[in-house]
Design a protein around this nucleic acid. Structure first.
Lengths: 115, 115
DNA sequence: ACAAGATACCTCGCCTGTCAAGGTATTTTT
DNA sequence: AAAAATACCTTGACAGGCGAGGTATCTTGT
């Protein structure tokens, strides 16, 4: 939350696809997984998450189906497609490239407490 | 250009401030410096650049003055303020934090050709 | 028994940053 | 004389994030 979301933006889709690379999942769970992985430091806003799902499904990168026989509230599961896997790889490459570029551009030799 | 600008977004201000940490400069030159540093891979769109200057000046992070006695077209020089230097350090920290977070979230063990 | 919180989904409308497209003015190169 | 480079600026459209609101079910605390 403290961290500017404009820094995460552009990685939203990558993060979701990365999550779905491991297993089919649903919105609420994906968010909880992210929260766990970052020790509670990050979580998508719901509106952001569901907007992203819609965008990814329209792009053919994921498909969805309703989870059955679940005891709790109904869940819409998402599954990554072949196209989605390719996109994930592409996005990873984009990230690596731009990450290196950004580091080149923002470095002035100042020492910052890395974390 | 090839690289999604949503990945750069959020670092725009940091990049400009980093440039001004070294010396006073003006829009056109800052952009050319960025282009040189990235071997022509990146450059801000003019509209983006001038919007950022305005935002940074309104925030008190930079100040501007007209360059005199220059032979070519008139130049508006920008100078980073004390507040701007503090902001730069803060933004660097934000970047480091979110970079680590993103890497944690998008990694699935897939090997990508690093560049 | 009932309220509160957790689980789980969704939409509308605002805000912010990017950028295509347009414009101005001067100097240098062809 | 024309074209390209230097240098600035604004407008309006567009996309993504997200606050605020809504729905429905199940579990937990008192």
């Amino acid at each position: 939350m403290t961290i500017a979301s404009d820094l995460i933006r552009g990685n939203t889709d990558t993060i979701i696809l990365a999550s779905l690379m491991k297993k089919d999942s649903y919105g609420y769970e994906i968010n909880k997984d992210i929260s766990a992985k970052t020790a509670g430091e990050y979580e998508f806003k719901e509106a952001t998450l569901y907007t992203a799902f819609k965008r990814l499904e329209e792009g053919g990168f994921i498909t969805s189906y309703w989870g059955e026989d679940n005891v709790t509230a109904r869940r819409r599961y998402y599954s990554i497609t072949e196209r989605g896997k390719e996109e994930y790889i592409k996005l990873l490459n984009d990230w690596n490239k731009s990450k290196n570029m950004i580091e080149k551009l923002i470095d002035t030799g100042v020492i910052v407490n890395g974390e």
